[in-house]
């Protein structure tokens, strides 16, 4: 009566001896590795998109290049005429709520750091600037707007940076879609592998399962033993894959930082993002557990 017997209790189903265990762990490790890297990509694209969207939201500027003419006054008048045409167009665009050309004083202020006080704006060939306020929910097609502006006035042009960013956002959105598809595929492939190895294992241990069945074991009794075992494999495999993925993510990050322009440096992972990546072993554990559990319940109904 020293030690309680149940401490040394052996599992009725010797699942630890299954030769498929190693195979599954490798599959799960690779899956979680790919998943973590792809996910970190999606998450950083998200941060990037958020930053970019913030910077193109709310407002934009339109430049009117000055007309060159020896007669300064005529030149200014022509430039202002082009500005009026641009304003006229901008006011018809849906999503634009306010169009304000910068006044001479405002322009002076802008060039003051370079040219000092006391310059006569009208005698200088400097661009005119129109400040445009956008509605919060405005969905502006920047490329289309740029084209329309050019038609209205050859002197007018849309702020370059925004146009370029908006194209980049479309590209990043596409990347995100592809990456999300990869994420779903990885989950499907992993649960597929778990499904088939579980079925194989059920066949392998059929003689034991039949005895348990005749003794009155319900399907959940067997399913729970498989669920537990697969949860363990899912966790270990997931942990290993995640531990491999973390240095890889840092490495990719360090490559990205070397790209000039600070565009990619917007793509950092936040605390929540890292939290999600660190919880991947739990996630793979749950997927492995539930897949095995439902595979057993389904298969036993056909088998016995």
């Amino acid at each position: 009566m020293s030690r309680p017997q149940y401490i040394s209790r052996k599992q009725e189903l010797p699942l630890k001896g299954d030769s498929t265990s190693i195979f599954l762990q490798v599959i799960i490790s690779i899956s979680v590795f790919i998943f973590a890297i792809t996910l970190s990509g999606v998450l950083s694209i998200n941060t990037m998109l958020y930053n970019w969207n913030q910077s193109i939201l709310g407002s934009l500027t339109v430049q009117i290049m000055p007309i060159n003419d020896v007669n300064k006054e005529r030149a200014t008048a022509q430039t202002l005429a082009h500005q009026d045409k641009a304003i006229e167009l901008l006011q018809t665009v849906k999503g634009i709520i306010k169009v304000t050309p910068l006044s001479n004083e405002q322009l002076k202020e802008l060039i003051q750091p370079w040219l000092g006080d006391g310059v006569n704006i009208n005698n200088l060939p400097i661009p005119r600037i129109i400040d445009v306020k956008l509605a919060a929910d405005a969905e502006i097609d920047f490329a289309d707007l740029a084209q329309k502006l050019a038609q209205a006035s050859p002197q007018a042009s849309l702020d370059n940076h925004k146009l370029w960013l908006s194209k980049l956002i479309d590209f990043a959105d596409g990347l995100k879609l592809i990456a999300s598809t990869v994420l779903i595929l990885v989950i499907l492939i992993t649960s597929g592998a778990i499904f088939y190895t579980t079925q194989m294992s059920l066949g392998l241990h059929r003689h034991i399962i039949e005895i348990l069945h005749i003794m009155g074991a319900k399907d959940t009794y067997v399913a729970q033993q498989y669920g537990k075992r697969m949860a363990w494999l899912g966790f270990c495999g997931g942990l290993f894959g995640m531990l491999l993925a973390i240095p890889t993510i840092f490495f990719i990050g360090s490559l990205a930082v070397r790209i000039e322009g600070g565009i990619i440096s917007d793509a950092t992972l936040g605390l929540v993002d890292w939290g999600i990546i660190f919880s991947l072993p739990i996630f793979s554990m749950l997927i492995a557990m539930y897949t095995a559990y439902y595979t057993v319940k389904r298969t036993l109904q056909k088998m016995l």
């Binding site: 017997q5 009725e12 010797p14 003689h207 034991i208 348990l212 003794m215 009155g216």
Partner: peptide, 30 residues
């Protein structure tokens, strides 16, 4: 049809474990 990888004790305990009996009671009965 005994399970070869289980001890005599665990083999006899099988029907009780399958219906979720408390391990102390199992130990006593077996």
């Amino acid at each position: 049809r005994l399970l070869d990888h289980l001890s005599a004790f665990d083999n006899v305990a099988l029907p009780l474990r399958v219906c979720g009996m408390d391990e102390r009671e199992i130990r006593k009965r077996v």
